[in-house]
Design a protein around this nucleic acid. Sequence first.
DNA 1: CATCATGTAATAGTGAAAGTTACATGAGTA
DNA 2: TACTCATGTAACTTTCACTATTACATGATG
Lengths: 156, 156
Amino acid sequence: MSRDSRLSDVLHILLHIAFERAPVTSETMASSLNTNSVVVRRIMAGLRDRGYVRSEKGHGGGWVLSRELSEITLLDIYLALGSPALVSFGRRSDTSECLVEQAVNANLDQTLQEAQRLMLARFGEITLDRLAADVELGIEGRRKSLNLESMHASKS
Amino acid sequence: MSRDSRLSDVLHILLHIAFERAPVTSETMASSLNTNSVVVRRIMAGLRDRGYVRSEKGHGGGWVLSRELSEITLLDIYLALGSPALVSFGRRSDTSECLVEQAVNANLDQTLQEAQRLMLARFGEITLDRLAADVELGIEGRRKSLNLESMHASKS
DNA sequence: CATCATGTAATAGTGAAAGTTACATGAGTA
DNA sequence: TACTCATGTAACTTTCACTATTACATGATG
């Protein structure tokens, strides 16, 4: 289990919602993810606030999409999660008078921020309906789709 | 302060060693980094095992480079640290029968691994003597050098 | 009004890195 | 030889962010 599974979790949840006609409860998704319903509500709160989903209380309530999957990108979701750190590495301190440390940190930042920009750019290109298509294609189909995906990505 | 500062720390240490003629003790570096000498030895162990540095005991002992800075890349150091995670995000589980989860994870992995490959490729291009040059140029010079660096990077 | 479902604060658990202590080993020095 | 310096490493403890759980309030449905 990795350190931060929120992005993966949210995508899982959103696609399940999309495949259901009826609202999906936090409890249902929590079971599917092997976690607690509060965790589900917590990571969905940002998406609700930004208008990607709606939550309905009472009987027959649960989560519903308020936008098409094609209108939501991974970047939207990432931002809705509060833009958590993408890269594990960092610096020990921000305030150092040591020139060596400053130069080292400046150089590392270059590389790390470049990687971060790349990830965010990719996130911005990927809409959820493409993910949904992968799911519908099934395992074998998914592999093919990903290969096409990777070709497309390397050309852009 | 980020969660993993080892890469930054090691670079700091190696450049300091390079700038000194005499061996540098773990205690000295620990003071410079505001940490403990055991932490220094711990993160340096991998580099010693791979032959990038040598450690000498007793009076006048400490850490010494056993290769030129130009012969060491950031990638070498990263590997010597044990190849720790570069990207913060991951999946909740590796074993799921849920097709949605499988498709989501496969897609995320694509993007994340691509970012990881990019970072490692950059690491492989950056030799420590280039970092050392940045230090010697000082703050203003360093800025210019980084700009050139970034131009070079975007062309490759 | 009983039940279902979300909303959220408060608290505890978890895992990896960082920090610390303790002690063993080896190298130089008086 | 004895002493000091410095590394090597095991065995903790601490810290920090994410995850998990508990508890209770609010609102919607039947």
